[in-house]
Design a protein around this nucleic acid. Structure first.
Lengths: 226, 226
DNA sequence: CCGTAAATACACCTTATGGTGCATAGCGGC
DNA sequence: GCCGCTATGCACCATAAGGTGTATTTACGG
């Protein structure tokens, strides 16, 4: 029962191998200290960027669990989780962040996060939830929550169309963006001013919780918004 | 056997209802004149922009066939074909363009074009191919070609991964772009200079035959390049 | 009749992007 | 050893894009 291929194993004999991905040094060091106090946890590594985590794993590093921040330089925590689940599906990802909006949470879960903790979680609760996620629980209300997450994810892959409250006009504009039009072309296409097209695009960004065409195209295609 | 819902019907009793989408006035008028000479064809409408075609159809216009250019202001002919097939699947789209590169042709076919003609096609051959596409043929070598097209399209929806000759590095960069990174973030992520990241991105654009992040994200996701 | 939301539009600003040209280093094949 | 390809890097440029603020008109619900 030795750790292999970075796969998680039941937290039994040895200590839980854990890595932290968090860009703020103070928070990162604080977590290392805090978690290091617990005999059931071993801090295998900590990184300020998700890319470094991948480097560690590519280099043969073994992990059972990753504490992942969302706001990160470069690849954000959501995308990092997605990649991690694709290449090392056995590694459990626990999001630890200050963002608590529904969209971000859902995105993280869809990306494959096993739990989602807020940074204001009390130290002792944090510890217990990290341990519990290796059993049959999922932080955010143990045991029960896990089934809810699975349901959401299943619904997503099954082709459910999320509702971001886009207006009819915004949906049209979104289609144009996905078709690769610039905001100028879009404006001509829809018989509106370029400035209006921009305004629509920005509204769409806010509603979909993104900030670039690349992201909006991805989200629109993945969630079948067009 | 009257035309209904913009659906195509066997070219039998009445004349073939056809629309032209072509931005160059000379070419458009030339086609109208040329095709109008044939008693089997009725030029129902002609447009300089694809958007106007949709306006015509939304307004109740009936069509059996559309001659579609690719280079168009606003929505290009490929995207227009995709939309047309989504909303009016009965309308046959014939691409008529000067582009003869493999990628553009495949894109058009995947979008649902029934045939692909080059603008240097002799007038009489053009006429015959327009007529033949309503039967059981597909321009670009009648009868036989049609099965080839269907096979390509089936293969595509079935999850085949096209090969655009991307290098390993370019594939990595492509993943980053799809994940919504800017070229600066990408550069940090891959430990290269921002200028190099840009260079890679531009190479990817050339290979995938696109010219913006929005387009490259769409193509990468649709063709499962990542 | 009023408030809200949507759609429209313009100004202004910073940064990102797409495009081009050029150059160097490493690597594999002929 | 030379050629071609890849990866890398830099400079320069025009335009697109992202972000913020303000404002008008229309439409719908209370």
């Amino acid at each position: 029962m030795k750790p292999e291929d970075g796969l998680a194993k039941p937290a039994a004999a040895s200590r839980l191998s854990l890595a932290i991905v968090e860009d703020e040094k103070e928070v990162r060091e604080g977590l290392k200290y805090l978690l290091g106090l617990d005999g059931r946890i071993r801090i295998a590594a900590s990184f300020s960027r998700a890319e470094d985590l991948f480097g560690y794993l590519d280099g043969g590093g073994r992990l059972e669990l990753v504490l992942m921040d969302i706001h990160l330089p470069g690849i954000d925590g959501i995308a990092a989780t997605r990649r991690l689940q694709a290449s090392w599906p056995g590694i459990i990802v626990l999001i630890l962040t200050i963002f608590e909006d529904q969209d971000t949470i859902l995105d993280a879960i869809k990306a494959g996060a096993r739990g989602y903790l807020l940074k204001n979680t009390p130290p002792d609760a944090l510890l217990e939830q990290i341990i519990s996620v290796c059993g049959d629980g999922s932080p955010i209300s143990p045991t029960v929550a896990r089934r809810i997450l699975e349901e959401i994810r299943r619904g997503d892959t099954g082709g459910r169309t999320a509702d971001y409250g886009l207006t009819a006009r915004e949906t049209e504009v979104l289609r144009d963006i996905v078709d690769g039009l610039t905001y100028r072309e879009l404006a001509v296409s829809r018989h509106i001013a370029a400035s209006t097209a921009k305004k629509h695009i920005l509204h769409i960004y806010q509603k979909l919780n993104v900030s670039s065409k690349a992201e909006v195209v991805r989200k629109a295609l993945e969630e079948k918004l067009v």
